[in-house]
Design a binder for these strands. Structure first.
Lengths: 107, 107
DNA sequence: AATGTTTATCGTAATATTGCAATAAAGAGA
DNA sequence: TCTCTTTATTGCAATATTACGATAAACATT
């Protein structure tokens, strides 16, 4: 025991949980907000902006990338990270639908 | 080490991460979707609907409740769980703002 | 009072996450 | 080539999460 029983839930539920998990840490929220604030694509400087060691930041970036929330690509000299519009769109739609369905009911 | 450095991030970032964390598990996504689908408020029956032991479901419900995503109240005989419209509204707004800011930039 | 039903909590094992120092890898510039 | 800078990876310790059996608590129904 101890491992999540992913196979017991739908693909959609697992996908949503995976994306939400990627954002379920203040450092990763901060990274996304920073990418959004500065340029939406940024080459370098993320580490200096966070109160964490370089190795830790790199790990958080990898998690965001694995979940598809950000994209990273080698641009000549540095590595550039961008927000993934598609993933953020999915999240927006999900909560949008959730809320509109909720409002149509009455408690 | 090992513990999240919450104090290094803003209250807003921590709050958002906390709500997202509450939803960052397929079982908890399934619970929210079930509450939405059936009635938005439901008294009993959640356990039977999930492929997990009763103790585990109870634990997941507690996490959702602690994060403010759902509300639970003793209604006479059973315990009724409802979605918290306010929390879901916050999530919707967050991703809505995120996406609109993103679209106004160009990569 | 005894029984059944439903939900919560405790205790515990398995697994995952968080964080960092150390080190590697890869390219830029001297 | 040697060094500097930047990002990734490895290895490890501390902590958190996930899951469940056992048990408790609260209230029905008999």
């Amino acid at each position: 025991m101890g491992a999540t029983k992913s196979d017991q839930f739908s693909d959609q539920q697992n996908e949503m949980a995976m994306m939400l998990k990627a954002l379920a840490h203040p450092a990763r929220v901060a990274i996304v907000e920073y990418l959004l604030k500065v340029e939406s694509c940024i080459c370098g400087g993320i580490v200096d902006h966070l109160p964490l060691a370089q190795a830790t930041v790199s790990q958080h970036l990898r998690e965001l990338k694995n979940a598809g929330v950000i994209q990273g690509s080698v641009e000549g000299t540095a590595i550039c990270y961008c927000l993934n519009e598609k993933a953020l769109g999915k999240l927006k739609n999900y909560f949008g639908k959730l809320e509109s369905k909720l409002k149509s009911k009455c408690c």
